[in-house]
Amino acid sequence: MNAPPANAALVDALLSLKTAEEVEAFLADLCTPAELRAFAERWQVARLLDAGGKSYREIAAEAHASPTTVVRVARYLKDMPQQGYRIALDRLKTKA
């Protein structure tokens, strides 16, 4: 994947961080509280979708997300070539 230079620099910055505390501090500086909540919401939706057993409505209610967000995350999990959600979900499963 060829990211624009600004995106590549951000990726490099994220990869330079070594601890959860460093990542939290960087994200707190980089993002607004609303942006962080949106990221956390999408990640919770991805985890709930991956776990299965719940309807999109149930996932939306549990994650305090809109149905549109649930559908969008589901589409990215299933159809998009990047598979970023899938990579993180699978790595966290093997870590547990």
Results as ranks from 00 to 15, higher is better:
41 E>L: 14
10 L>W: 10
19 T>V: 07
16 S>T: 05
12 D>F: 10
84 G>T: 00
7 N>P: 14
92 L>N: 10
80 M>G: 06
63 A>I: 01
74 A>R: 08
20 A>I: 09
70 V>H: 01
39 F>V: 13
16 S>N: 10
66 S>G: 01
89 L>K: 05
24 E>S: 15
28 A>D: 06
78 K>M: 10
50 D>F: 03
5 P>W: 06
41 E>P: 06
88 A>F: 07
54 K>L: 09
84 G>R: 01
12 D>L: 09
6 A>E: 14
37 R>P: 05
4 P>S: 08
82 Q>F: 04
38 A>D: 14
12 D>P: 06
54 K>T: 08
43 W>Y: 13
20 A>K: 13
19 T>Y: 07
67 P>S: 08
64 H>A: 02
56 Y>M: 02
38 A>M: 14
36 L>Q: 06
39 F>C: 12
42 R>E: 09
18 K>V: 02
32 T>G: 05
30 L>F: 11
5 P>C: 01
39 F>Q: 10
29 D>V: 03
48 L>S: 04
30 L>E: 06
69 T>P: 08
4 P>H: 13
40 A>C: 11
47 R>H: 09
66 S>Y: 03
95 K>M: 12
18 K>T: 03
82 Q>E: 02
24 E>F: 15
91 R>Q: 07
68 T>P: 05
91 R>F: 04
16 S>D: 11
19 T>M: 05
30 L>V: 03
90 D>V: 00
13 A>D: 08
49 L>E: 00
3 A>W: 15
23 V>W: 15
24 E>M: 15
66 S>C: 03
83 Q>I: 01
83 Q>H: 01
51 A>H: 13
7 N>W: 15
61 A>R: 14
8 A>G: 00
46 A>P: 07
65 A>K: 00
7 N>H: 14
16 S>A: 13
94 T>V: 10
64 H>R: 07
